[in-house]
């Protein structure tokens, strides 16, 4: 089994920002804030956050803030809750939450809560349990969960639970590992995990592991490195991670590395991207791979960053 090519991955992430002219980077331009979070968190987990100029990132991030308080995916775009969490996470990584007008951001997020407890992604009203997680995670980092009706928010998430133990986007939506992460994460942050049948959900999540050791996100799908994060973090939060074969999963993730140019792909021999590089490294961190910083399964940030926020280190 190969090892994690730390230096190559650092090189790869640092280089992404310079390749502004490829088609990929042009069509990903509108979600650059997510990209920044994936890339920078990876660097931090690898212990190499200092290879990036913090000042530049922070001022760019703040330029993406809209007058409503929300953040956009890049300068000049519309704000959305998806990018607001990434922006807050990026600032948290650099210990720069103090540049934020916290009340303004919190008001933006709280304003997106709907009557039945759900959250819209932005002013246009699409509802999804992903947005519930984002709202709860973000407000918790900003330490103002009291701005929303937590009880109703939890109630809505629970209304999206299926008979198989999993969760979907909205009530009646199909269980999906990504949505499960969001719902379990939100329940964990709000101290509501007692509402989950851990054996049942753990069972569904474990059945995501396929022969190669990789995890898929839904029945009958191919394995994909990103589910190393969604499934694994959920299993850890409900204390059932010992139900899967961790060694095989480590091997699967390592097999998805591009050993020549750095980066991690969805499956062995596919093209790499920053999204899968992050989820691969974060997955390995959850699997306690040597040399990596520990990552918090609910907040998706390095544990030391979380400790700094909640315990002042």
């Amino acid at each position: 089994m190969g090892e994690l090519a730390v230096d190559k991955h650092v090189q790869y992430i640092v280089s992404i920002d310079k390749k502004k002219d490829s088609f990929e980077s042009v069509v990903m331009d509108h979600l650059r804030m997510n990209g920044a979070y994936w890339g920078l968190t990876t660097l931090d987990l690898l212990g190499k956050l200092d290879s990036i100029n913090a000042g530049e990132v922070v001022s760019w991030t703040m330029e993406c803030q809209h007058e409503s308080g929300g953040f956009s995916g890049n300068i000049g775009h519309d704000p959305h809750i998806l990018y607001t969490l990434s922006a807050v996470q990026v600032l948290a990584l650099f210990n720069k939450l103090d540049v934020l007008d916290i009340d303004k951001v919190a008001t933006y997020i709280a304003g997106l809560q709907n009557e039945e407890g759900s959250f819209s992604g932005d002013m246009w009203g699409e509802v999804d349990t992903r947005f519930s997680y984002i709202a709860i995670c973000c407000l918790s980092i900003l330490r103002c969960l009291d701005k929303i009706n937590v009880e109703k928010a939890v109630g809505y998430i629970l209304s999206c639970k299926n008979l198989d133990g999993g969760f979907g986007c909205t009530p009646g939506g199909e269980s999906h590992a990504g949505q499960i992460f969001c719902c379990v994460g939100a329940l964990a942050i709000t101290g509501s995990l007692h509402h989950v049948d851990k054996d049942l959900l753990g069972w569904w999540l474990c059945e995501r592991q396929v022969k190669s050791g990789g995890l898929n996100g839904r029945p009958e799908k191919l394995p994909d490195v990103c589910y190393s994060w969604w499934v694994l973090s959920s299993l850890i939060m409900i204390d059932r991670v010992h139900w899967i074969d961790k060694e095989k999963l480590v091997k699967f993730i390592l097999d998805c590395q591009d050993l020549e140019n750095g980066g991690i792909s969805d499956r062995p021999d596919d093209a790499v991207d920053v999204f899968h590089t992050y989820f691969g490294v974060a997955g390995l961190s959850l699997l306690e791979y040597p040399g990596l910083k520990a990552v918090d399964p609910a907040y998706a940030l390095p544990v030391d960053v979380i400790n700094r926020i909640f315990f002042g280190r």
Binding site: V27, H30, H77, D78, H80, D122, W124
Partner: peptide, 14 residues
């Protein structure tokens, strides 16, 4: 048609 998830363009239309 070229960049289907460009949210700001969908929003402008709305």
């Amino acid at each position: 048609l070229l960049s289907c998830d460009f949210g700001t363009a969908w929003n402008a239309r709305k």
